[in-house]
Amino acid sequence: MPSETPQAEVGPTGCPHRSGPHSAKGSLEKGSPEDKEAKEPLWIRPDAPSRCTWQLGRPASESPHHHTAPAKSPKILPDILKKIGDTPMVRINKIGKKFGLKCELLAKCEFFNAGGSVKDRISLRMIEDAERDGTLKPGDTIIEPTSGNTGIGLALAAAVRGYRCIIVMPEKMSSEKVDVLRALGAEIVRTPTNARFDSPESHVGVAWRLKNEIPNSHILDQYRNASNPLAHYDTTADEILQQCDGKLDMLVASVGTGGTITGIARKLKEKCPGCRIIGVDPEGSILAEPEELNQTEQTTYEVEGIGYDFIPTVLDRTVVDKWFKSNDEEAFTFARMLIAQEGLLCGGSAGSTVAVAVKAAQELQEGQRCVVILPDSVRNYMTKFLSDRWMLQKGFLKEEDLTEKKPWWWHLRVQELGLSAPLTVLPTITCGHTIEILREKGFDQAPVVDEAGVILGMVTLGNMLSSLLAGKVQPSDQVGKVIYKQFKQIRLTDTLGRLSHILEMDHFALVV
């Protein structure tokens, strides 16, 4: 994948999101292997301009796509893939009243899908469409860049269908997702969380590099694949309309690839034109409109599966009536509230959605109805927002919020430890010299600072030695090549209790 991002070429006709291997024109390309080798690009942008032909009021008969309808489940399912879809609609009884809503608040519980998330729908649909058009064949390999849930859905379907599955996901995604993927037989590649989507090191860039190296491999490409919004247009939206008897006044959905909100909203605009569509985008993402909503100094966020630093091709923002931004604290607070007060075992993005819903639905009156999409299960986040310690460490809970008995030293300040200034190293000294210094002084790690004293990161003896043994660096290389740029900081005025929580999850903390 090139470091400079080429513009994806656009073909003359058809839909841009065809499933299957992508040609340089962004659509299915038939021909000899030699032709494909000559024409197939190194990668295709996940934010390529959409060429979708959908228009409100256009006859369904003019759609270029294969459409399906929700099917009634048999008493005995032939395999677990038949437990994807037909998820329950559940009334939220307490939270709406707590925040003064007059309307009825309903939750579409997508964590009841077989793999635990709304992404099971698009995973199965992308595979079925690729099999139907002859792209996927027995023994082929599926590769997908994902925040985890699409990966789980694909790995689940691949396990049943017999495909090899490789999932490329950023490091910030939970260990629970990784464990589930491994249990399903998927191979996992992790990428830096802070890598831009168009960087060769991003999950998108690495996935395309693997595709170019592995024979008979395919990126189904949830960011561009029409099967993504079509899955929701054909099934999720129809289920909502049936469950609500066609009567709903507002739908609120958090947005990642945009397939969920695009597919549902398009069908609702056709069948229930008075329904307002509300999009939820986390602070630090750029999906919301108008652009002024996205202006923030924050560039990272903890909530998973929603928000991006690019506009995915499948996201149709014209069908969203209003956007709201959400933050991590309210997302996790509301997710825990949904679990504790409503018994809905949902993930953090569901918290984002409901946090926005109780604001947006203030305009609705008694007798009206708001539906929220709860995308995934708490299963993926047992060591994250479900953990009091994690919430404390991230600053989303305060010590006084917890009532468990603490040891005698818990409320003492870090400054009472009488710490001395640490050994520091410059980023320009060599790895070999740094190892000598650390061994001589008896230290395992040291902060790396520039000549102005600005902290650049941390270097550890173990990481340097393993990097040297693996051949990633040489003793003569500058130590700046092996620094940890993500590390926890703590102030002298913070409590030892807070430091204790940090050290339970990290090997060190830097006192500043």
Score class of each variant (00 low, 15 high):
E4G: 11
V10S: 15
V10D: 05
T13L: 10
T13P: 09
C15K: 12
C15M: 09
P21A: 11
S23F: 14
S23N: 03
S23A: 13
A24F: 13
K25D: 11
K25H: 10
G26T: 08
S32Y: 10
P33W: 07
D35N: 15
D35I: 11
K36W: 06
K39E: 10
K39G: 04
P41K: 10
L42R: 13
L42S: 02
W43I: 07
I44F: 15
I44S: 11
I44C: 04
R45I: 09
R51L: 03
C52W: 03
C52K: 02
T53R: 04
Q55L: 10
L56M: 12
G57Q: 08
A60G: 04
A60E: 11
E62K: 14
E62F: 07
E62I: 13
S63Y: 04
S63W: 01
P64F: 15
H65R: 01
H65N: 04
H67F: 11
A71S: 13
A71F: 11
K72A: 09
S73N: 13
P74F: 07
K75Y: 09
K75Q: 11
D79E: 13
I84F: 09
D86M: 10
D86T: 10
T87F: 01
P88W: 03
I92G: 05
I92W: 04
K94Q: 13
I95N: 05
K97D: 15
K98F: 07
F99W: 12
L101N: 00
K102S: 01
L106W: 14
A107L: 02
K108H: 01
K108F: 02
C109R: 06
E110I: 00
F112S: 01
N113A: 05
N113S: 10
A114K: 06
G115S: 08
S117R: 04
K119V: 00
D120C: 05
S123I: 07
S123D: 03
A130V: 08
D133A: 06
G134S: 07
G134I: 02
T135E: 03
T135S: 02
K137F: 12
K137E: 07
P138F: 12
P138V: 08
G139R: 14
T141W: 09
I143F: 03
E144K: 06
P145S: 04
T146D: 04
G148E: 01
N149M: 00
N149I: 00
G151L: 00
I152G: 01
I152T: 05
I152H: 00
L154D: 00
A155L: 06
A159H: 06
R161I: 08
G162L: 05
G162K: 04
Y163S: 00
R164V: 06
C165P: 00
I166W: 02
I167T: 12
V168A: 07
E171M: 05
K172Q: 07
S174R: 00
S174E: 03
S175P: 05
S175Y: 13
K177Y: 00
K177G: 00
V178T: 06
D179F: 01
D179N: 04
V180L: 10
V180I: 05
V180H: 03
V180R: 01
A183L: 05
L184S: 05
G185P: 00
I188G: 04
P192M: 04
T193W: 07
A195T: 10
R196Q: 13
R196I: 10
S199I: 04
P200H: 12
S202Y: 05
S202F: 06
H203R: 02
H203Y: 08
G205D: 10
V206G: 08
E213W: 03
S217V: 00
I219L: 10
D221K: 04
Q222P: 01
R224P: 07
N225I: 05
A226E: 09
A226F: 01
S227D: 10
S227T: 14
H232N: 06
T235I: 12
T235N: 12
T236M: 13
A237T: 14
A237P: 06
A237K: 04
E239C: 05
I240W: 00
I240Y: 01
L241I: 02
L241G: 07
Q242T: 11
C244I: 04
D245F: 07
K247H: 12
D249T: 06
M250V: 03
L251I: 15
S254M: 04
S254W: 04
S254R: 06
V255G: 07
G256E: 01
G256T: 00
T257I: 00
G258M: 00
T260G: 07
I264Q: 00
I264C: 13
A265Y: 06
E270M: 05
E270D: 13
K271H: 13
C272S: 14
C272P: 08
C275M: 09
